[in-house]
Design a protein around this nucleic acid. Structure first.
Length: 110
DNA sequence: TTTCTCACA
DNA sequence: TGTGAGGA
């Protein structure tokens, strides 16, 4: 938790991110449009990604493969930014459990 | 050379 | 999502 800032520092050009995620530049920019990732910008308007961004991109890939759409991914990500315990139907559950529930509900909708 | 935005036979 | 144009 002490060295997390390292994972947040914007240092990777889109080219590198493409190589480690196997995503096309088009896809990466598309996900940014939908606020799934928010890379930093250089003076010349070039995108700079952090290791955290890469992890987010990789998770987007997984969720997409699981059949979750952009809207669903936004919900899952929203959960990660909130506390670790939630109230669902009167019961207190963990972030992981809620995530599983959201995923199941998103599947049911599609 | 690489990346950016915009637009679509 | 791909691809090419035109610029930085």
């Amino acid at each position: 938790m002490k060295k997390d800032y390292r994972k947040a520092m914007p240092i990777l050009p889109i080219r590198t991110v493409m190589q480690i995620t196997n995503l096309s530049a088009r896809q990466i920019r598309y996900y940014e449009e939908h606020e799934l990732v928010e890379p930093m910008r250089t003076d010349g308007n070039r995108r700079l990604f952090s290791l955290q961004n890469v992890d987010e991109l990789l998770e987007i890939q997984e969720l997409l493969e699981e059949g979750v759409n952009i809207a669903g991914i936004k919900k899952v990500f929203a959960l990660k930014r909130t506390s670790n315990s939630h109230t669902y139907r009167g019961k207190t559950i963990s972030n992981g459990e809620l995530r599983a529930i959201v995923l199941r509900e998103m599947q049911a909708l599609s």
